[in-house]
Design a protein around this nucleic acid. Structure first.
Lengths: 338, 338
DNA sequence: AATTAGCAGACTGGAGAGAAGAGTGCTAAT
DNA sequence: ATTAGCACTCTTCTCTCCAGTCTGCTAATT
């Protein structure tokens, strides 16, 4: 990017103002608030070249400037390096996050809620997911003569259950016996390991093993853990969504179970925050929006994602450090649960 | 209600047309489609008295008729008694519901999705909730030296978990011993019974018991089980929500965790469907909407609710029997899981 | 060469007027 | 009791006009 220093200043002013007011920024406004002692006419000259470079457009001939996707990208890169939350803000978020004692699920949900209220957009936090999930403990509990509940405790304090039914009477004693055998044999094993080392001395053991593999496999299959999505209302209150058809378009996407999966984040890792702006989104309904997203957790072991979805004109200077900060808090605290 | 037969016919035509077209119904339209051989002028006379009786209004002086809340109530009462799904529709819903094998959670979620797509509005299904939940099985699993996972299996195949941490080392052996003692003592007990018959011979037992009571109490506290809410998109695509501020008002309500709790259904029981129309809603954001809701499950034991939320002008003739039918299917199938 | 003042021109957005259309309420006739 | 007819009301669409905003260009200035 070969922008003169002054052009950079002007571009930043345009983006800042536009983020604030959601109105095309006039050259006079820029002149007033850029701090440089130059007239609107000069600004207009510079703006003209910014337009040639592809950083701004005008909604119509004699309107002020609005940033292009490219400008947001440039801006977000800048902000990602520099912006930090004030320690007061950090403390606030930290204190809010402490307000629930309970389970990781509630806690992550709370994190999403706090984040969404803080940045006034939609926030997503997923449960951390193990690279390979391993069996920690199995319980078999008889529901009635012909059905039992399989309770699987996985590492990361994750619990799965499944009802299996039988074509014959199966007693709690039978179940307990099998549970003990399986616990002894499969503790700490992954789905693949269970598959290769099947015990299968009895029909019941076979059935239970199948159920275990089922559960482990379906857990491994999904790209992310269960998502907590909060603040739809926050996002849709933004002026970008004053037209109800844009709202409906987004809701249509979110109605799909798998919309999070379809977000393309080729090299998402916990080292770096990803910022996907406008047209970069593969999903059409998101092409007027931006996504700020980061991995948290223990790389290679248990990782989840935390992110914010909002209009392209979101407050990156607040959102980016917020996601960064919360992802680091989550990463630190997650060890408690694993 | 003292409406002449012909007035009833006219009122029904008005409601039917308005539900279909969402446009005030003109006297000529009524005359054309009511089947009676009377002129628009006569219709207008009748409509005038319907207005006096409070069943219709006009958005402005020279506009057609639109039904009042009262008219919808009248109509819904009628429909509730008469309408039934065709057996083809019943079969369709039934088949769709069979398409997931798994757990009750997925199954209820599927039910909500199917219902919402069928009636094109928002559907809610809650997990069934026991009148008093009872302990079925306890597991204590060590996470590390200073923390353990409490896994509580309740009746109705409901599993709860909680992490408890210790200020000293606690081994899996310690945990197993306590779990065995507690299982022996508390199986089938409610929170109150556990409270009155405390064992508490050791600190660990005390801590675990507290956790159990915590979990049982918080489970008892809520009015309904966890809700599955599907089809927001379906509802908000309706023409009533073409104004984005009405959308935002509803979303604001739904952002609140407890909005379902606040719905006043004084005498909700599984015998009868409840239809709450417009102003009858205590929640202000719902006063332009209607709620069709019914209990399902086993009265006095495990009950949940199933319902549809949509504009007052919803298709009651389809919605009411759909909710009725699905509630009966859920009631029948729920026994499998308990 | 860079900057600026000044001005013409482009476009928006709102107000106002007018016409067409839809539909009622009333009256008088059937 | 019903209906035809008509005056009147209200909406909605289109068109025009006008004020306001802001740019792009040109020519003057530093």
């Amino acid at each position: 990017m070969s922008l003169a220093p002054r052009q950079k200043v002007i571009l930043k002013v345009i983006i800042d103002r536009y983020i604030l007011d959601v109105v095309p920024v006039a050259s006079k406004t820029i002149a007033d608030s850029c701090g440089l002692k130059i007239s609107p006419a000069t600004i207009r000259n510079e703006v003209a070249s910014l337009e040639v470079e592809g950083y701004i457009t005008h909604p119509h001939h004699s309107a002020g400037s609005i940033p292009t996707d490219e400008a947001y990208r440039h801006y977000a890169r800048l902000v990602a390096e520099r912006s930090q939350l004030s320690s007061a803000e950090q403390l606030l978020l930290y204190q809010l996050l402490r307000s629930t004692g309970g389970e990781i699920e509630q806690w992550l949900k709370l994190a999403a809620t706090i984040l969404s209220r803080f940045v006034h957009n939609l926030a997503v936090v997923t449960l951390p997911k193990m690279a390979q999930c391993r069996l920690k403990h199995l319980d078999l509990i008889s529901l009635h003569d012909f059905a039992a509940l399989v309770v699987l405790v996985l590492y990361e304090a994750n619990i799965k259950k499944q009802v299996i039914s039988f074509n014959r009477r199966v007693s709690q004693d039978d179940l307990t016996r099998v549970a003990n055998r399986i616990n002894a044999a499969y503790i700490g094993k992954t789905s693949i390991e269970v598959t290769t080392e099947k015990l299968e001395n009895s029909l019941l053991e076979k059935e239970v093993t199948k159920s275990i593999i089922d559960i482990l496999d379906s857990e491994n299959k999904s790209k992310y853990g269960r998502p907590y999505i909060e603040g739809l209302y926050q996002m849709l209150s933004q002026p970008e969504f004053s037209n109800s058809s844009t709202i409906v378009r987004v809701l249509e996407l979110m109605d799909r179970e798998d919309w999070l999966q379809s977000i393309s984040c080729p090299n998402l890792n916990s080292e770096r925050i990803e910022i996907i702006i406008g047209q970069e989104n593969t999903e059409e309904a998101l092409q007027d929006l931006s996504l700020v997203i980061r991995q948290y957790g223990i790389p290679g072991s248990a990782t989840g994602i935390i992110g914010v979805l909002g209009p392209k004109r979101m407050d990156y200077a607040k959102t980016i450090p917020s996601v960064n900060y919360l992802s680091s808090v989550l990463s630190k605290s997650i060890t408690k649960y694993i």
